[in-house]
Nucleic acid binder design. Structure first.
Length: 493
RNA sequence: GGCGCGGUAGCCAAGUGGUAAGGCAGAGGUCUGCAAAACCUUUAUUCGGCGGUUCGAUUCCGCCCCGCGCCUCCA
């Protein structure tokens, strides 16, 4: 079944088919590395990851994201910090990769703007040669919007009333039309500058994405995605540049993630509701909780990110992990039941059809939780058989290949972030909860299993005092022990 | 002002022209050395408000109220 996605370009949900055979080529706008990524950034990146993982299940995928490592904010911040921009961006690029990994975001092919400056200059030169761009007296270059009649087709804006040739002074640059956007910025004292075929300077914001996406994916490719704020002007400008150069349609599908709200309000530093991934982890929230909350709301719906929601997400993940553990550890009778096979099949089908419907993650989750409930009920009734485990686990894998929250490595991830906070002198931001979660990071499975075996021995001997002591000891190390009719189970806090 | 999106139980949230998925939280129960986990029952006569179309609307249309986004560099 071909999936359908909402395409910003057409404004409709459309059936998706790759342009070439069974291969999808996708470009996602990555971060501008001027600071640590916040939860809003990662809503978009998690959405892209969900899309990536979904596509990978069905197609061959070439997925590229860019890192913008030269722009006004970077130049400003690096200047304030008194370090070269390369050094400055390296730090935040690294942070972005770490935070992405913490949220189980798979790493696509990553390309950097500063590695493609010459290519961008050549791109601009061609635009000048074919009349779509012009140079101003100071050595900057602008795209002439009046040469691209379709300008506004993505953002649904009407620029037909624009006067061409009316020179308007904007800032210190002279543009032919106020709407014309910068392709290339003339050098300024103290700012990074490159010598190129079109002269010295640095690229404007939009040109990098056109240049790099076309280099790695071709003149026309399947999907281009990012946050909704990029629709205009960023993506609109990319279309104008790219299609003016090639005469071909640039990206065919444009997919944009909706902005999130934090506690019902737009996230902003002034409102004090601005959180980075690291902030949240240090406050005691697991990366898996953050990912779950971010994935649980379909990407085109405004997501209200709240601390209550984070707790709810943590509990939901716990339920899923507990079920996965039960399948793994339960002592079951031999045999296999048709009803469980059916349940697993229906779940896989439910996940698939939900995601094929414009990545309806909320509905996919409902399918999984339905399975968890029914399979748990069967297990409680003694009707779950050994042969049922495999299909149910496969259905869980189908789910987790997209959602990626089942594997429990939160302790290690939280520990790393705590260590980072300590190295940055942010000890005061490390909560007790975060330390409790991280406590088990250095305790190996084998070590735990050994104590669990002792605990089981004590229980067999009805030595409950000893059993409770062991449980208490494990609890100190960040391990929760549960005694079930299927035996003793443990998990990390 | 222009263009666009949304308002569903305490919270998060899916969905359909025919009578409200799922999760979290709460209440009661089963099970249990304890603690959990799990299961069962229960929690919206109702889907922002008012009209309209219809045999019937939460779902379509109009108006209003509220929230949010974009309108040159914020994911």
């Amino acid at each position: 079944m071909a999936p359908s996605f909402f395409n910003t370009l057409s404004g409709k949900i459309e059936e998706f088919r790759p342009l070439q055979d069974n291969e999808v080529r996708m470009y996602a706008c990555g971060p501008t590395v001027y600071d640590y990524g916040h939860i809003g950034n990662f809503r978009t990146f998690v959405f892209v990851d969900i899309l990536r993982r979904y596509l990978k299940q069905h197609y061959k995928l070439r997925h590229v994201i860019n890192i913008t490592d030269v722009d006004d904010k970077i130049i400003r911040n690096a200047g304030q910090a008194g370090v070269p921009i390369g050094e400055y961006t390296k730090k935040y690029t690294q942070a972005f990769l770490e935070d992405s990994a913490a949220l189980n975001i798979e790493e696509p092919q990553i390309v950097r703007a500063t590695d493609h400056i010459q290519l961008m200059a050549e791109f601009i030169k061609k635009l000048v040669d074919n009349g779509h761009a012009y140079r101003t007296d100071d050595g900057s270059y602008y795209f002439r919007i009046s040469t691209f009649p379709q300008y506004g087709k993505l953002s649904k804006k009407d620029f037909s009333g624009m006067e061409d040739g009316a020179r308007v002074d904007v800032d210190e640059y002279e543009k032919d039309s106020a709407r014309d956007f910068a392709l290339w910025k003339a050098p300024k004292p103290g700012e990074a500058s490159w010598d190129t075929v079109i002269g010295p300077g640095r690229p404007g914001w939009h040109i990098e994405c056109s240049t790099m996406s076309m280099k790695y994916l071709g003149d026309s490719f399947d999907i281009h995605c990012g946050g909704e704020d990029l629709i205009f002007p960023h993506h609109e400008n990319e279309i104008a540049q790219s299609e003016s150069l090639t005469g071909k349609q640039f990206a065919h599908f444009w997919m944009h993630a909706r902005f999130l709200l934090v506690e019902g309000e737009k996230m902003s530093k002034s409102l004090g509701n601005f959180y980075t991934v690291r902030d949240l982890v240090l406050m005691g929230h697991k990366p898996s909780s953050i990912r779950f909350l971010l994935t649980s709301v379909p990407f085109r719906k405004q997501l209200n990110f709240t601390f209550d929601g984070l707790t709810q997400a943590a509990n939901s993940v716990e339920r899923l992990r507990t079920f996965a553990l039960r399948l793994q550890k339960a002592q079951l009778p031999e045999g296999k039941s048709a009803s469980m096979q059916q349940l697993a099949d229906a779940t896989v089908q439910g996940i698939e059809s939900a995601l094929a419907d414009d990545l309806n993650t909320a509905q996919a989750l409902a399918a999984v939780f339905d399975m968890v409930r029914d399979a748990n009920a069967a297990a409680d009734a003694g009707q779950l058989k050994q042969g049922d485990v495999e299909p149910l686990q496969k259905a869980l894998q189908k789910f987790d290949a997209i959602f990626a929250v089942l594997h429990d490595d939160d302790a290690v991830k939280v520990k790393r972030i705590i260590e980072w906070a300590e190295s940055e002198g942010k000890q005061d931001k490390i909560s007790e909860q975060a330390r409790a979660i991280a406590a088990s990071a250095s305790v190996g499975d084998a070590e735990i299993e050994k104590l669990i075996a002792e605990l089981q021995e004590a229980r067999r001997a009805k030595n409950f005092a000893r059993a409770d002591a062991i449980r208490g000891e494990l609890n100190q190390q960040g391990i929760i022990v549960e005694i079930t009719r299927d035996g003793v189970r443990w998990r990390r806090k």
